[in-house]
Amino acid sequence: MGLLAALIILAFFIVFHELGHFIVARMCGVKVEVFSLGFGKKLLVFEYKGTQYAISVIPLGGYVQLKGQQEAFTHSKQSAGLETNDKDSFLAKSPWQRIAILIAGSGFNFLLGFLLYLCVCIYGITSVPPIVGEVVDSMPAQEAGISRGDRILNINSVEIHTWEEFSKIVQDSEGMISLRVQSGNVYKDITLMPRLVESKNVFGELVWHNAIGVSATQQVQIVRYTGLQAIIKAWEKTIEASKLILQSLQKLISGALGVQHISSVVGITHIMSSLAQSDLVVFFALSALISINLGIFNLLPIPPLDGGHILLTLYETIVRKKPNERIANALMLAGLALLLGVMMIGVYNDINRIIAP
Rank of each mutant, 00 (worst) to 15 (best):
I296R: 03
K93Y: 08
E18D: 09
L4M: 12
F284D: 07
M27P: 04
G258Q: 02
Q221W: 01
G133V: 10
V197F: 10
M1S: 13
L228I: 13
S36V: 11
E71Q: 08
Y117D: 07
L179Q: 05
M1L: 14
R148C: 02
H261M: 11
I122P: 01
R353C: 00
G295R: 00
V265F: 01
A5L: 12
T226L: 12
T74C: 06
G105T: 05
L115P: 01
L118Y: 11
T313N: 04
V158A: 14
P140I: 14
I318D: 11
L153M: 13
V266F: 01
F297H: 05
I160Q: 11
D88C: 02
E174T: 14
C28M: 12
F110Q: 05
Q70Y: 05
S173F: 03
L312Q: 00
I55P: 07
R326E: 07
A330V: 15
N154T: 14
R180E: 15
F35Q: 09
A104Y: 03
L280S: 12
A241N: 07
K67Q: 13
I101Y: 04
V136H: 01
S157P: 02
L286R: 03
L66E: 05
A141M: 08
K188M: 10
M193E: 15
N352K: 14
Q171C: 15
V135I: 08
P129L: 14
A92Q: 01
P303N: 06
H270R: 03
G50H: 04
D137I: 13
S36G: 10
N352G: 15
C121K: 05
G184S: 07
V202L: 12
L246G: 11
M176R: 12
P95M: 15
L299E: 02
P130S: 12
F166P: 00
I271P: 03
I23Y: 00
S248N: 00
I131T: 06
L338M: 14
T51G: 02
V181Y: 10
L60G: 10
A5N: 09
V342C: 08
G20E: 08
G184Y: 05
G40E: 10
G113H: 06
L196F: 11
L196R: 11
E33K: 06
K77T: 15
I253T: 09
P194T: 12
